[in-house]
């Protein structure tokens, strides 16, 4: 982490608990860079997170008000804080299992309400902290500790879900696309209404070692190869896109 960002962090809790090769550290840096470039005062911000590795990005690392809550419920906790104190800039940062599986109902209803929250979903496609179980975002065929023969259930397309539910800023980037990711986080923070940013973040410890993707570096490489921009995807056929992940901004209303 760049030294100029240390002022946003409780450096006394370093090192972070993230495994080597985990994408969450890159995401943490991207969020702080976005805040730094926008010139936000962290004293006016509240970071809400649930349970899981992604939830540890803000809590306890961010030197701001943080609310680390029960599994799946950060969006609902954030809803209450924001509604009562609209002057707070409220950001939810949590994992895919937390936000989209156990907390899926709160996610779609926050989108329906178009409440002024920024939700950053650190999607590693697996339950990392609890030992690598299959998630609602695990791609088809992937091996996890509860799908040793490969996942047979289709994953959610989180961006489509939030878009359909009424979110008014929706985007997806991978942690290797750092610059567009920072720009997107800034847009999300500046957006009035519900903004949802899905961030693909590799989990070498739980996902990588069970699947072909191998080492942390190889996982990042694979992620890079799998991601195509929205613009490029529009020129590709459905067969070509079958194993690709489309990234970019999907809703900017």
């Amino acid at each position: 982490m760049s030294k100029h960002l240390y002022k946003y962090l409780r450096t006394e809790v370093f090192p972070t608990p993230f495994c080597s090769g985990c994408g969450h550290g890159i995401l943490m840096g991207a969020i702080l860079r976005a805040i730094d470039e926008l010139g936000y005062d962290m004293d006016g911000m509240l970071f809400v997170s649930g349970i899981g590795c992604g939830a540890w990005i803000p809590s306890p690392h961010f030197a701001a008000d943080t609310l680390h809550v029960t599994h799946g419920r950060p969006v609902a906790f954030a809803t209450g804080a924001k509604l009562f104190k609209p002057s707070l800039k409220v950001v939810v940062i949590s994992g895919d299992g937390d936000i989209a599986s156990i907390g899926g109902n709160h996610l779609i209803h926050a989108a329906r309400r178009d409440i002024d929250l920024t939700i950053i979903c650190a999607n590693n496609g697996i339950y990392g902290m609890t030992g690598g179980q299959v998630a609602a975002s695990t791609p088809l065929g992937m091996r996890t500790s509860t799908t040793p023969d490969g996942n047979r259930e289709r994953p959610f397309d989180l961006c489509k879900l939030v878009e359909a539910a009424g979110g008014t800023y929706v985007s997806r980037y991978s942690v290797h696309q750092v610059k567009p990711l920072i720009r997107s986080i800034q847009r999300g923070l500046e957006h009035t209404g519900l903004s949802f940013i899905e961030v693909l973040s590799p989990c070498p410890t739980q996902f990588g070692r069970r699947n072909v993707s191998g080492t942390a570096f190889e996982m990042l490489q694979t992620l890079k190869e799998d991601c195509v921009s929205r613009q490029k995807a529009e020129t590709m056929g459905s067969e070509e896109l079958k194993y690709k992940i489309v990234t970019g901004e999907f809703v900017t209303s």
Binding site: A76, T79, L83, F84, N105
Partner: peptide
């Protein structure tokens, strides 16, 4: 006062806790 009808009771109490820490008597 601020009222919200949540999606379920889990959400209700979660929102209350968030609001309480934001200074409300929920």
């Amino acid at each position: 006062g601020v009222f919200v009808q949540m999606e379920d009771e889990i959400g209700s109490i979660a929102a209350m806790i968030g609001a309480s820490w934001a200074g409300a008597k929920p």
